[in-house]
Design a protein around this nucleic acid. Sequence first.
DNA 1: TGCCATAATGTACACGCGTACATTAATAAT
DNA 2: ATTATTAATGTACGCGTGTACATTATGGCA
Lengths: 341, 341
Amino acid sequence: MTTNRKEVARLAGVSEATVSRVLNGIGPMKESTRVRVIEAAKQLNYELNAVASSFARGKSGNLGVVLPHVPKVHLFSTYYFSEILSGIGEAVRSKGYGLLLLFRDPATVYDYVSLFRTQRVDACIILGASAVDTDMEGVNRLAEERLPFCVMDQRFDNPSVSVVAADHEQGSYEAVKHLIDKGYRKIGFLNGSPQYSNSWDRMTGYRKALNDAGIKLDESIIYEGNYSRTSGNRAANLVYADLEKLDAIFVSNDRMAIGLMQGLRERGCQLPEDLKVVAYDDSDAASLTEPPLTTVKVPFYEMGRLAAEKLLSRLTDKDETETVINEKLQTELKIRKSSGN
Amino acid sequence: MTTNRKEVARLAGVSEATVSRVLNGIGPMKESTRVRVIEAAKQLNYELNAVASSFARGKSGNLGVVLPHVPKVHLFSTYYFSEILSGIGEAVRSKGYGLLLLFRDPATVYDYVSLFRTQRVDACIILGASAVDTDMEGVNRLAEERLPFCVMDQRFDNPSVSVVAADHEQGSYEAVKHLIDKGYRKIGFLNGSPQYSNSWDRMTGYRKALNDAGIKLDESIIYEGNYSRTSGNRAANLVYADLEKLDAIFVSNDRMAIGLMQGLRERGCQLPEDLKVVAYDDSDAASLTEPPLTTVKVPFYEMGRLAAEKLLSRLTDKDETETVINEKLQTELKIRKSSGN
DNA sequence: TGCCATAATGTACACGCGTACATTAATAAT
DNA sequence: ATTATTAATGTACGCGTGTACATTATGGCA
C-alpha cells in the first residue's frame, strides 16, 4: 500500500541503507547515486514514514505545548495564547519539529512526566501555569526528572525550572512612571489574581515607581480582580466610590481595564477626563476601546519563539542538555488616549 | 533506559502478549492476571510507548489542524481560531487522539497529501481555506485521494470535499431582517473578501431579506472590505459620504464593524443614532465596543468539535470511511445597542 | 605495482509494540 | 467421562527505519 524504502532501493539499484543516507543527507555519497535515489523516490511517490523514523530514532519529533482548558471558558485572553502559539509554531517549523497541542484540566495535577515516558513529546512548553499547588506539583515533578521543558511567564522558586517571561516589574514601573510624569500623584492599582508571579511583579513595579517619585503608597486604592473583564467591571464599584482619591489607575491587563471602564462609564464617568487609565498586554482590544488604551505591550510572540528555540537547541547540543533556561524579555509602553494624551 | 514490555511481563510472570492485551483492554482475561500485570507496570513505572504503538498500528494517532500563518499577522480574528481549536481539542481528547498543529504558508500550495503519506496524521482539519487557486488546488488533491479531511467554514464545488460550516445565509438573513423589523429600509452592506464562500452566502442572505420585505436592492450602498479592522475603517469614508442614503448597515464581521464605527465617530457621527449597525461573529470584542454590537453569533466551538468528532468516527467505523461530511450549523442573532435598542 | 587512507556502499539488526495463530485451561453439554 | 465450546494465554513475526559495522571501490603516494 504505502511504498517503502525497499522498493526505492530496488528501483535505484542500491541498498536500503543508501536510500536512508541519501534521504537524511548523512555521510559521504556519490552525487550520481544521490540523484538516482532521489529520482527513484520521486517516481514512486515515496516519502519517509515519520512514525517509523520516530520509532527508530527513539524520539517523537514533537514539541508539546500544554495549555489550561475549560471548555467554553477562556482563562486568559485568547490574544495571549494565539500570539505565543504563533511564536512557538515559527520556531518549531524552522527546526523541523511537530507541534503537539495538549489541554490540561486545571485543578488537577497534570502528569507531564508521562508525556515524556510515553514518548509523545521530546520537550514541552507549559502555558498558563500558576503558583497554586496542583500546578506547582506538576511542574516540580518535571524538574526533578531533569526533563527538557519550559514554563511561560511564571516564575518558580525551584531553580531548576526553566522559564521564559516578560519583565513585568519593568513594564509596570514604566506604566506608573508615565502617569507620574504626566503630573498625576494619586495613582490606584487594580491587580490580577495573586497566584501568578506576574501579579506580584506588577505590584513591585508599581510600588517602586511610586517610591522613586516620593509618593506614599495608599493601600486603600489598591484593588484586586482576576484578570477577567467581569472582575474589572466589579471593581468599578469600589473605584467609583474612591474617585476623589484617584487621578489615575494602573490596571494589570486590558480585559480588566475594559470592564472597569465600562463600569465607570455606566455610572456616569467621563473617560479619560475623570480618571486616567493605563492597562497591560496591548491586546487587539486595546485600540478598540473608547478611549483607546495606553497599555504595556508584551512580546508574547517572541517569548514563544524564544522558549521553543532554546528548548529545541537543548535537544541537539549535547553539552546544553542540562542548561536551565531563564529569560526575561522587555516590555514597551504604548501610549494612547486613556492616560490623557 | 526506558522500561519496556518484556520487563513487565517477566515481573508479572506472563507473556508479553498478555501484557499488551491487559494494557489495551483487549480480549478476555482473568481478573487476577489483569491485576498482576497492572501492578507490575505500576511498580516498574511502565507506560506504553506511544511512538512504538503508533508504529505497530501503522497510525500516528494524531489529528492534524492546518492553519494559515504569516508571522505576526492575524489573518482572521484570533477569536475564530481559538474557539474552533478549543472545540477540536475537546473532541480529540475524548477520543484519545493527539492534536498536531500545522502552519500553512498562504499563497503556496500546501501539500496536505504528504501529511498522510508520511503518516504524521490520520486525519486533518483545514482552517482558513479560501477559494483562491492555491488553496483550492491543495484541497482538491486531498479529495482526489479520498483521504479523511474536513474543511472548516468554506464550501467547495467539489462534492467529495468534506465541510463543516455555519449557515451564513440564514445568519445574514436574520441580521438584515432584524433591521427591517425595526423599521429601517435603507440598509447598506459592508461585505468581506470575495474569496470566501462565506462572503457570498452573506450576500445571498442580505439580498433575500431585502427581497422578502419588498425592498429594492441598492448597489450603491454595498461596500467591500477584507474582514480586517483597517478595511472597515477605510470603508468609513464611503459610508460617511452616503450617510443620507443609509438608515442602517450590515457588516460581515465584528472587526470591520469596529473599524467602521471608529471611522464614523472620528468624522463626528453619533452611534447608533446616525446609523444602526449589525455585525457578525459575536467575538469577544463585540460587547466591548461603544455602543455594544448587535451581531450574529457563530457556533465556532461546536463547529470544531463536530468536525473532529465526525472525522475521527470515520477512522474507526469502517463503513463510514468514504462518507463525505457536510454539516451546516445554525447561527444566532445577539441583539445589543448598535442596532438601536 | 603495491600499499594505505578514505570514500562509498552493503549487511544485519534493534527499536517496542500489535496481533494472527497456536496452544492450553476451564466450562458446558451430552 | 467424554467431547465440544469458549476462555485464557503463549509464540512468533512484521511494521519501516536508523545505524554500527563490514565490505568494497577509489585515488594518492611511494
